[in-house]
Amino acid sequence: MKLKILPTHLREKKRYLAFEAVSQQPLKREDVISILWDTSLHLYGVCGTSKFDLWVLKVWDCPHSDDYIIRGIIRCRRESLDEVRAILPVVTRFNGKKVVFFTIGISGTINSAVKKFIKLKEVDD
């Protein structure tokens, strides 16, 4: 039997963080998940990370000339938004190659995050 879903006022409030990553190698969603979790565990430890409800929803490839650029959406709890944001600048390397993450924007729903910040067609300019 499946658990009944919580009523809205008891659910955790979420925030969706649109990010962009530039790297020297192509990144998949699994890579992004492991990068963020490893960094978060380094920075805040197990206890801190457990409070964030950190999850990577989806990533998009953006065609670019020299480096590999991806855009994606991270989910976290509304209360721990600042802590999650602080994880991104700490990322420096993955598998010996350089990576840089930065936030493009923050949104309350996935839909508006995609519409406002991901905007795949404009990536080139």
């Binding site: 802590e83 944001r85 602080a86 991104l88 600048p89 700490v90 420096t92 840089v100 930065f102």
Partner: peptide, 17 residues
Amino acid sequence: SIYDLRSPRDLMALSSC
């Protein structure tokens, strides 16, 4: 290089550390 640049708003979040 671009790999050392960080977004200023992210740095603000990091500075609480």
